[in-house]
């Protein structure tokens, strides 16, 4: 039982990171109906920025309080990823908006390839380890919970609350939802569609940056290729939860995290990804729009 709860906690931690990335996929999909394949690499850019900021901080100051360091890393990473995602949207997606469904998918894949190779070229192909930032581990009834996990949980919850507020209670969120429903009509009613879409990309990127920073903190290592696997997992999570649905993305992320950690704990670590993908396929076969997605009504 303790073992199970332990795995549950590990899974939820991992799932929170997936969930944060998945929101970026789902929001972009919701608003312009495209899979932003480069989003996983935006996450990687976030983790890398956090790494470099950490290195700068440790080079300049003898010691910085961990909380302050993490906060600075997170904020700078958010700014950087936002800048990247904003530029990508403007350069690679906006010219193709509304033309042809597969074209932006291909530019997104192209951007993903370009980004990860850009980082490989400029930062080198090797893994980049950093010394552990947070090391405390608490023992509660025989279950060990690390402070890292608590930080991840707290940050995720705070961000999701903030985010929920932003999407549901502000005029920005209203504009986003309006664009999601009918872009032409939203434009006619005075919503600045371009700006709203840009902001959506920035919001998605910021969450990915946070996920990237947390990822760096949790694993203590990052490499140029680290965008792909979490990216695909988060995308899987977004689809599993029902792409376009923000609560779905979080739910999907947590589920994928749980499946992975429980499968590795009880069955085989080699096949954890196979398990995650298989469950996605099975869920979609029975619920073709994911868990919380709105069923697509076939218009005849």
């Amino acid at each position: 039982m303790q073992y199970f709860i332990q795995q549950l906690i590990n899974g939820l931690t991992l799932g929170s990171i997936y969930g944060l990335i998945a929101i970026g996929y789902t929001m972009v999909y919701g608003i312009i109906g495209m899979i932003n394949f480069a989003h996983g690499d935006i996450f990687m850019i976030g983790a890398f920025t956090a790494l470099i900021v950490f290195l700068i901080l440790s080079a300049i100051f003898y010691s910085v309080p961990v909380v302050v360091a993490l906060l600075i890393m997170m904020v700078v990473a958010m700014i950087m990823t936002s800048l990247y995602n904003w530029t990508i949207e403007k350069v690679a997606y906006r010219p193709l908006r509304g033309s042809f469904r597969l074209a932006p998918l291909i530019t997104a894949i192209g951007m993903s390839i370009a980004l990860s190779n850009f980082v490989q070229v400029t930062q080198g192909p090797r893994n980049k380890p950093i010394p552990p930032l947070v090391t405390d581990v608490y023992n509660v009834y025989g279950i060990s919970i690390s402070l890292k996990q608590i930080v991840i949980a707290v940050v995720t919850i705070v961000l999701l609350t903030l985010f929920w507020y932003l999407v549901n209670k502000t005029s920005l969120g209203r504009a986003q939802r309006a664009c999601e429903q009918d872009r032409k009509m939203a434009a006619l009613l005075g919503v600045d569609v371009d700006r709203t879409i840009s902001i959506t990309f920035i919001m998605g990127a910021s969450l990915a940056a946070v996920a990237g920073t947390l990822f760096l903190m949790y694993y203590g290592v990052v490499a140029f290729s680290d965008g792909f696997v979490p990216g695909v997992k988060a995308f899987t999570a977004a689809v599993l939860g029902g792409i376009g649905s923000i609560p779905g993305a979080v739910l999907g992320g947590l589920l994928i995290g749980l499946i992975e950690s429980l499968w590795s704990a009880y069955f085989s670590i080699d096949y954890k990804d196979v398990a995650a993908f298989s469950i996605l396929a099975i869920v979609l076969i029975f619920l073709p729009s994911g868990l919380l997605g709105r069923p697509e009504v076939e218009k005849v």
């Binding site: 109906g33 376009g244 729009s289 709105r294 069923p295 697509e296």
Partner: peptide
């Protein structure tokens, strides 16, 4: 049949 049709409420509403 544009790409925006998707699973968005527009469709549901029409039904």
């Amino acid at each position: 049949s544009s790409m925006f049709e998707g699973p968005i409420a527009d469709t549901v509403e029409e039904a």
